[in-house]
Simulated scan of single mutants.
Amino acid sequence: MMTMNRMAATNMSGAPSTNMPEMMPASMPNMVMVPRCTMKMEKCTGGMKITCMCDDPTACTMMQNLCTMMAGGMCSVACMMNGMMVCCCNLTMGACKVEMTKDGCCVTCTSGDKACCDMIQGCCDCMTACMKTGCTCCLMMGGTPVCCCMC
C-alpha cells in the first residue's frame, strides 16, 4: 500500500484562507497527495545535500516523476509542527541539482560564493534541528510539494 500525506497547497489568489466549511469547495482542489519518505540533510562542500528515500516502490516512482517534472524550479523545504509552519528555507542563494537514486532522489544545493554557502549550510542546520525535534518536513520544487518526511 502506497504511503502518502495530504498537504494543503497555497491559495494562489492571495485571499486569506478561512476555516469555515461553507467556504470550502466540494471537490477541495487545494489538496495534493505527496509521497512520504525518509529525508536526510547534510552539509557538503559548497552547500548542502538533501536525500529523500522511499521504501514503497510506487511512492518512490511518484516522487521521482515529480522531481523530474519540477526540476529547475525553486527548491525549498518547509518544516511544520502541529500544523503550523516553524521554518521555511527557500534555497534561492544556490544552484540546486536533482539526481535520481535507486530508492528516491538527492537534491544538492551549492554556491561558489562563501556568504551564500554559509546561508545554505545555516538552512541545513536549522532544518536538521527542526527534524530532530519532530517537525514534519516537506521538500518543494517550484512551490509544488515533492515529498514529505515525518521524523
Rank of each mutant, 00 (worst) to 15 (best):
A15T: 12
K132S: 09
M4P: 03
S76C: 14
C135M: 10
G104E: 00
C79S: 15
N5Q: 12
L91I: 05
C138Q: 07
K102C: 09
G122T: 10
G142Y: 05
G73E: 04
C87I: 06
N82M: 07
C135D: 14
V77I: 10
D113K: 10
Q121S: 04
P25D: 14
T3N: 11
V146G: 01
A129Q: 13
N90D: 13
N82Y: 07
T68Y: 06
C117L: 08
A71K: 12
M39Q: 03
M39G: 01
C105T: 08
C54I: 07
C149Y: 03
G47I: 00
C117F: 03
P21V: 12
M140P: 00
R6E: 12
T3A: 07
M23V: 11
V77K: 00
E99W: 06
T58R: 10
M31C: 12
T38R: 12
T3C: 09
S27T: 02
N65I: 09
G143I: 03
C79W: 13
I120Y: 00
N5T: 13
C147E: 02
K132D: 14
D125E: 14
M62F: 04
S111L: 04
Q121M: 08
M69V: 08
C138M: 11
G142L: 12
T18S: 09
A8Y: 14
K132P: 09
M23P: 09
C124W: 00
N19I: 13
G134I: 06
C89F: 14
D113M: 08
M150R: 14
T38F: 13
D118F: 05
N5A: 06
G83L: 15
V32N: 00
P21M: 13
G73R: 01
G94W: 00
L91V: 04
M127D: 04
C105K: 01
K102S: 10
M140T: 05
C151V: 08
C151G: 11
C89M: 07
M4W: 08
Q64G: 01
M53D: 15
K102Y: 15
K40L: 05
N30A: 11
N30H: 15
G46D: 01
M4I: 14
M48T: 00
L139R: 03
G14P: 03
S76F: 02
E99P: 01
M41Y: 04
M81I: 11
S111M: 04
C87R: 05
M4H: 06
M85G: 07
C138I: 14
S13V: 02
M41G: 03
C87Q: 05
C89I: 10
C60Q: 06
P145L: 02
T68G: 08
T3F: 08
A71R: 05
A15C: 12
A15N: 12
A15I: 11
E99V: 12
C149P: 00
M80R: 11
C37W: 01
M141N: 02
N65W: 15
A9Q: 09
T10C: 09
A95V: 01
T110S: 06
G122A: 10
M100S: 14
P25E: 08
C124A: 09
M63S: 01
M140E: 04
V86W: 15
C117P: 04
A115G: 07
A9P: 07
D113I: 15
C67P: 03
C117Y: 01
T45D: 11
D56A: 07
P29T: 01
A9Y: 14
M150F: 09
G104F: 02
M24E: 13
A71S: 13
M84G: 13
C126A: 09
T38Y: 11
M39V: 07
P16H: 10
E22L: 13
G112T: 06
